[in-house]
Amino acid sequence: MNIFRLAGDLSHLLAIILLLIKIWKTRSCAGISGKSQILFAIVYVSRYLDLVTTFISVYNTFMKLVFISTSVATIYLMYVKFKATYDHNHDSFRIEFLLVPCFLLALLINNAFTPLEILWTFSIYLEAVAILPQLFLVSKTGEAESITSHYLFALGSYRALYLLNWIYRYYAEGHYDLIAIFAGAIQTILYCDFFYLYITKVLKGKKLQLPA
């Protein structure tokens, strides 16, 4: 564990908490893509299957359980409790266009051709693109509430901090995983346009609004 990794994990946790606060306080999931949330739940479940096979640390187990349970809770809030506020007309991204290619790529490029390893690889590829339905929704409506912007910023920062963690681990421990590094770089690049808008608009107190 190094400072970049810890900061990344905390940023990830913060993102999830911000999203739950936004939905709970406004009693609404308007502006949030249910498709992205479903993809994140698939990411966590397929990646953390090793919970039952490998023990790494109390921290590791705890965080995995938190990520799985909060993503299920988010889906429950969106599709059951606050269903009436869910913006499904704008949330029209076809997730099979992400799920199928990620799974095929995981079958082709992986560290080992075993079920758990293929699912881990699939989750890494899927996570890289899971935010696309959310970014698509923001671009369709042309705006995002400020708390949704903070959520997206924290979520994007998490993998960017992991990139720093991987650079650190390469030099400090000689550890690297090309699949995670490659997917993490793609994931971070997808947020760049949003990061720019966040820094130039939201941090100056303006609403995140895309030019018409």
Partner: peptide
């Protein structure tokens, strides 16, 4: 590389 290691990251 981590090929043989468990995935210790989240």
């Amino acid at each position: 590389s981590s090929t043989k290691d468990a995935h210790d990251e989240l």
